[in-house]
Design a protein around this nucleic acid. Sequence first.
DNA 1: GCCGTTTTCGGCCCGACTGTTTTCAGTCG
Length: 573
Amino acid sequence: MARPNEEVEALLQEYADLIAITGGDAFKARAYEKAARAIGGYPADVSKLDEDGLKEIPNVGKSIADKVAEYLRTGKMAVVEERRAKIPAGVRELITIPTLGPKKALRLYEDLHISSVGELAAAIEADALADLKGFGEKTQDNIRHGIELLQRAGARVPLSLALDTAEEIVAELSEVTGCKRCAYAGSLRRMRETVGDLDVIVAAKRSEPFMAALCELPATAEVIARGTKKTSVRTAKGLQVDLRVLPPESWGAGMQYFTGSKAHNIRTRTIAVHQGLKLSEYGLFDAESGNSLASRTEEEVYDRLGLPWILPALREDRGEIEAALHGELPEVVTEKDIRGDLHTHTDLTDGLAPLEEMVAAAAERGYTYYAVTDHAPNLYMQRMTDEKILAQRERLRELDGTHHRMRLLHGTELNIDPDGGVDWPEEFLAGFDLCVASLHSHFDLGRKAMTRRLLRACENPYVNILGHPTTRLIGKRAGVDADWDEVFAVCARTGTALEVNAQPDRLDLRDEDILRAREHGVKFAVNTDAHSIPHLAQLRYGVGTAQRGWLTRDDVINTWPLTRLRRFLRKGR
DNA sequence: GCCGTTTTCGGCCCGACTGTTTTCAGTCG
């Protein structure tokens, strides 16, 4: 399925969880977690490495290298299989519930034989936890709430997983003889933050070979339905994939139809009806004669309806039809418009790669500038000091311009304390080229206090970007409560950019918030918050989100030339 | 289990918050 590094990462993480659940050495569990992260974030393909090569990866020693080699050779890791035999998979699922960790999970399993989220929910409803030590009323409330959060996101999967899976399936099906076109459509093509199922479209004369190919993919766990026009399967990770095979001449109409959204399609079909036409996945037809008028390309279909082609990310019936009719569709930002990443980490704090490697990887992406923004000292676990960050600055200045003339900016990610203050005094902050400021604690202040806190941070002349502004984690944690309209207004007034954080479990700000903030005239920065080299490529999710928020190049400060960016970063100091 | 040395053991991000176990364990960032 995924890249071998990600498979190994998932397996080692699973082993770490199983160690933690069975009460094994906590440091051992952490060692496996660290190795899992390091391998997931390692730029080289682990399946191409021998044992010595594996041991080159930080936090991978002999024992883990052996196990990884075993997995790459046999497809299995014996120690993981052994633990799996003792602990049902559902017990591990329990620790995905926020506030429920390995200790509580084991207690539930041992004392009450609960081994799935469903069983736990039922047990709480039946008041079966009443006598269990450590599970008071409040704890049960928290668990109940956690399960709700989980189930709300539950049926949908993160954009990143959906995109990986879809690209693999498209690549496989494109190889099948007779394939004229193949692509994914649906909410994934619109870059929604989570995806319910995958819609894959093939243009071909004969459908049978594609249906067979989909059913036989290694990722396919279950065939839900199989016909001549449509086949549905479920992958091992629980993602449903619907394949539609259309005649080649219907390609454009099929893509238009299956990309949606439903609301957008209702609008386009209504426009068709008013013109005496009928729009379906097979084409745009004259209602009277049934003659096909357009179907080969999406452009053709939209054009015949009297509309310009509309970018999928905009197809939500949020004003795009009206804008299209008036010739006022925004020219939204694209990945190649981004000239640099303004929020990234190195191994000086919790990143995986050293400064030199992050800089080299950024230059390979063709950036004209790049900012390094490691954590500031108030995030105690990162152990930042004045000396360390100044030494980094010195090294960064030496590297400036040495890779494809890419310019380097030295920054930091500050922590906004409960009062809205940040880590360093102003005279120290003045030494940075830019500062990102983020919330990392105290998420439960009331709305008033939270708003005041954010406003004060924005008023700080050294705070240039509000990092992952709401701090939500998709499916896990709601964003903080604040009067966002007030925050957006102050951002606009003070010249503080709002981040569109591209991490697939954040996507923060989200599209609706971006649309609102845009009304206030705020500027934005689309950043990866990369903690490893592969993370730099997650930019696409941030750009997709920015597009869904209708952002143009002018709205996004890291599409600007460096001189304009620097002027913005001075923020009237 | 990894790492780094003060080389083959001892430390490992450390502190805050929460709920309940009235003295601290569990979870989180």
